[in-house]
Computed example of a mutant assay.
Amino acid sequence: MSRLLGLLLVVVGLAYPFAVYFGMGHLSPRLFAALLGGLWLARLLLGKQGTGGRWMAAAVLAFCLLLGLAGEPALLRWYPVLINLLLLGLFAVSLKVGPPLVERLARLREPELPDVAVRYTRQVTKVWALFFLGNGLISAALTLWAPLFWWTLYTGLISYGLIGLLFAGEWLLRQRVRRAA
């Protein structure tokens, strides 16, 4: 059930900018808040997650509560900013309270990482933290100053393309590092 909810949240996250774009004039922000909040609450209650997952869910639930109480359509555009800030926090905190997030993920596949791989995963964690900082700042700027179409284009397509490029670039670099080691 937890995996299904996680997958559903990913799908909702991908569709969210388009739902806002097409639904903003027709659907109440309170409906968005109820649906999004319901998914995050279910994930919080049914999923097994660490401290990071709990505080992320709590932050999103607080956002949904604010959105539901205010009923303000302009708040809908802040969700991607919030998610980027939460991911930035997750990656950055893992650098201070180790092991870094990318190292944890790598150890799922290879429990005995060599020292060079541990240093590499720390650097990759820093890159992802910087990415989420930049992505969050761009999303915030578009929320504040750009037309809804530009916001939708960036948060619904371009940012996911950039994530894919970062994944692909890191994978290619990792292959080079492995061959050199």
Rank of each mutant, 00 (worst) to 15 (best):
R178T: 11
A180N: 07
W171R: 15
W150V: 13
A180R: 15
L166V: 04
W145F: 13
R179A: 14
P147H: 14
L165V: 07
L173Q: 03
R179L: 09
F149V: 13
G161I: 06
L157N: 03
Q175G: 04
A181T: 13
F167N: 07
R174N: 06
G161E: 07
P147Y: 04
L148C: 05
L153M: 13
S159H: 02
L153Q: 03
W150Y: 14
L157M: 08
L165R: 09
W151M: 09
L148N: 03
L148R: 10
A181K: 12
I158D: 07
A146T: 04
G156N: 09
G161T: 01
W145I: 00
F167C: 01
T155G: 06
S159N: 10
R174W: 04
F149E: 10
W151R: 07
V177I: 15
L165F: 10
G169E: 07
P147K: 15
A180P: 00
F167T: 01
W151Q: 07
L166Q: 10
F149I: 11
L172T: 05
R179G: 01
R174Q: 08
S159K: 13
G169N: 08
A146G: 05
L162N: 02
L148T: 02
A146D: 10
R176M: 10
F167M: 11
I158R: 08
Y160V: 00
R174L: 03
R179M: 03
L162S: 00
L153F: 07
L172I: 12
L172P: 00
Y154K: 12
W171E: 03
L162Y: 02
A168E: 06
I163L: 15
E170V: 06
I163V: 15
W150D: 12
A146W: 05
L172K: 14
V177E: 03
L157G: 01
